[in-house]
Nucleic acid binder design. Sequence first.
DNA 1: TCCTCGTGTGACTGGTCAGTCATATGCTAC
DNA 2: GTAGCATATGACTGACCAGTCACACGAGGA
Lengths: 243, 243
Amino acid sequence: MPKPTFFNLPEDKRRRFTDAALDEFALHDYRSASVSRIVSTLGIAKGSVYQYFEDKQELYLYLVTLAAQTKFECIDAAVRGEASVRGNVSAPSSEPGFFERYERTVYHGARFDFTHPRHGTLLYNATYEPSGEMLAVSARLREQSARYLRSLVEAGLATGDLRADLDVEFAVFALYQLTISLRDYLSERFRFSFKGAVQAGAGPPISDEALREVIAELARLLRQGLGPVATTTEEQRTQPRVC
Amino acid sequence: MPKPTFFNLPEDKRRRFTDAALDEFALHDYRSASVSRIVSTLGIAKGSVYQYFEDKQELYLYLVTLAAQTKFECIDAAVRGEASVRGNVSAPSSEPGFFERYERTVYHGARFDFTHPRHGTLLYNATYEPSGEMLAVSARLREQSARYLRSLVEAGLATGDLRADLDVEFAVFALYQLTISLRDYLSERFRFSFKGAVQAGAGPPISDEALREVIAELARLLRQGLGPVATTTEEQRTQPRVC
DNA sequence: TCCTCGTGTGACTGGTCAGTCATATGCTAC
DNA sequence: GTAGCATATGACTGACCAGTCACACGAGGA
């Protein structure tokens, strides 16, 4: 989507530009983000931006796509990595169940947000982008996540990890909302400012155990609900609660 | 907060002004909403607005407060009304449990959004307001809702409607997120555009049964989770599923 | 040496906005 | 009729923005 000029840029310059632009759109919504501010931060001329991109919108779409791809690949690699380690080291190991797969994905998603605050925050903003012209972007992101969750849910139904009478679309909706907004909960619970991390380029000052615990709590809510536990079945007790 | 001039306005003029302003802020986020557009819609002079309010921010705060108060009172009245009718007509009737109280609140909240699209949409926008200067507003709204949900949860714990080992803050978070975003689910599921309704001033083209069914599905998810149903206890079977 | 072409530049245009203020209007009291 | 006050007005200011364009620069090739 960017013009060829952009890809001809020396690696280093392109990187500095991308970082500054990610910053700007992570710190402001589409309309408030300012091309003028990006160039003045970088100390380059405004015209340069328009040598690289057709307009502000193309720049934004490029950054969102980049962030989404980066996050997806990162999560995917981490989850696969975990799976194969487990598979090789321990016993033949059965396929992980729905909740374990979900927990792993969410865990690595959260880790990504902490280690790549620019990308994570930009994506989060894009998800809630209020500008009318950009509705398509948030819709695309939502549909991508929903598709993934839907496949998880369908697999979960097939294996009996999920109750058979579930309304799939409703379940996907609930999973999506809780997963996306887990960020807000983490932010409040651990007093962690993602926007602050964007500005500081900061690392993750959150303990791995604390994070895993929160996600386990989320998984538990999804598995059992808020209601009192019925006579617990054998099936539930033996769910893999390790990791 | 508005200047005295605003309250001296003839009822009718004040009302027209308030409606137009609600429209503007329901259709655009804080930064994109334009005072110029409001006055040109109304055919009044820009200076007038600044006779009524100190600045754009004061106007916005007034509208959010107004919308929040209106919605709260509406829900409260409806829920109380329902309760008293039930209490009088039928048997002495036990106090409703956690899930019934939650369902009722959500039901009347959703009804409000359909019948008062201006107010509902403005509040929804305010909740997700991305403008940095307005963070305090969304935080206040969130805290208000959380306080209410927290009281519900604590009552639910006391009566045993909720499992005793629940992390209250996490439960409140989950309830809050699912409740707020139910709007998105309804909008997609029933192809209902709230922004469209704001522009049209429209009524509710959604069947009451369909709405109640969605909310029941939500309550069921919250009660039981997504997992397979354990040996169902007597306790669960006898939960009041009427209404 | 000069030409070309990819790249960089920043003053400039036209637009939108929040907020101001000198002036006008209309109403009430005397 | 007129003085005084609350309200209405809209042209204007200063700020910011996206996007443009005529020009400058520099490296490589002839």
